[in-house]
Amino acid sequence: MAAERTETVKVALGERGYDILIGHGLLARAGAEIAARLPGVRAAIVTDENVAPRHLPALIASLEAAGIAATPIVLPAGEKTKSFAFLQEAVDKILAARLERGDVVIAAGGGVIGDLAGFAAGIVRRGMNFVQVPTSLLAQVDSSVGGKTGINTAHGKNLVGVFQQPRLVLADTDVLDTLSEREFRAGYAEVAKYGLIDRPEFFAFLERNWREVFAGGPARVAAIAESCRAKAEVVARDEFETGDRALLNLGHTFGHALEAATGYDGSRLVHGEGVAIGMALAHRFSARMNLASPDDAARVEAHLVAVGLPWRVSDIPGELPDAERLLGYIAQDKKVSRGALTFILTRGIGRCFIARDVPASEVLSFLREHLGG
């Protein structure tokens, strides 16, 4: 399996460019791939309690076979690990292992671990080498690519962090078979996002082939590779999110507000589910603002329903804050500049754009309508 169709996507950032490898059996090749790019390094592997029993032994064995000594750092699983407390724990253990600036921090996990480990790599010794080994679909297609790292605070999601590009991303599609159905679906929301932003033909491909993506056929590798290409192109144009990289936030402004409103309680709402609801809301809000046809919003909602993702605010279990409080979370989100509300809206499937100075009164009215479903 190891030789079967490995796709390589290049992130073009000059001397800081790197490869994303996508395919079967890459976990077993991790040591060789890292040693080829970073000869003579030692490693810290940051992972979590869910991923460690499934994949840590194979990763350590692969590293040791390539002559890379590794120190595992196992943290609790879940969004609440993206905190100052666990960042400090990771940093302390990297330092206790006496790793140097030229050594490497490997993130083996989903988006939470990737964000936290990348932040630690960015600040320990003013910047260490960093490698992503994403084990969730969401991480493989989104958070592992592009160098955005960070943690959450009581004020909101991802408000503290640094840009720390990895030296390599290894997306082993076999590890996705160990995900729960819910985790895989949540990651799929980010796959669909790339089609909705500016790849209408990709969204149509997903509408036809999503079952094979879920089942693990060739469409899975194709969908992950296309998602990575989409993100890599945007990152190469706008590494630090000062321009059109903000398009990648489709669904995230609403989604992050809903995550904050649930207290980042993964039993109620995980990130990809928040993005799914956020994308549906963004398309519905665009129709309300007479920017797009309601038929486009209905098409997005129909696809989310087909794959089993939530699409309405009322799909979130438990009580939610009122519309005014949700608007407060939106205003705190990092996609706000000088108090003006910024959203990614759309003129149709695959025709998203950055909308600045969106009237808060319109958003508030819209939220009031949708809090009841």
Rank of each mutant, 00 (worst) to 15 (best):
A292R: 08
E319N: 11
G109V: 01
Y264R: 07
L248G: 02
K82E: 11
E79D: 13
G31D: 03
E241V: 05
L179K: 06
R211D: 12
R42T: 08
V105L: 07
G14P: 03
L250H: 02
L59A: 13
T8M: 14
G14W: 00
A287R: 11
A215H: 05
G25M: 04
R126M: 07
L304F: 15
T6V: 15
S136K: 11
V234H: 04
S180H: 13
G308V: 03
M128E: 10
L56E: 06
H24I: 01
L327I: 04
G127L: 04
T71Q: 15
K93D: 12
A85K: 13
E226M: 11
M279L: 11
E212S: 15
S267I: 00
A215V: 03
I349N: 03
L341I: 14
I68D: 06
A280C: 11
V74A: 03
A331V: 12
A36R: 14
P57F: 13
Q332E: 12
M1C: 12
E64G: 03
V313R: 02
V300G: 02
A360W: 03
A276E: 08
R54Q: 13
A35E: 14
L59D: 07
G67F: 09
A32E: 15
L179I: 04
P294K: 06
A44E: 13
A323K: 10
R16P: 00
I197M: 07
G243N: 14
G255V: 01
D322R: 13
F366W: 10
L21H: 15
G17Y: 00
A282G: 05
A108F: 13
V175Y: 08
F254G: 05
S293L: 10
V141Y: 10
P76Y: 06
E190Y: 02
K80N: 12
D295C: 00
A36D: 13
I123Q: 10
Q88M: 09
A120P: 01
L269E: 07
L170M: 07
F214G: 00
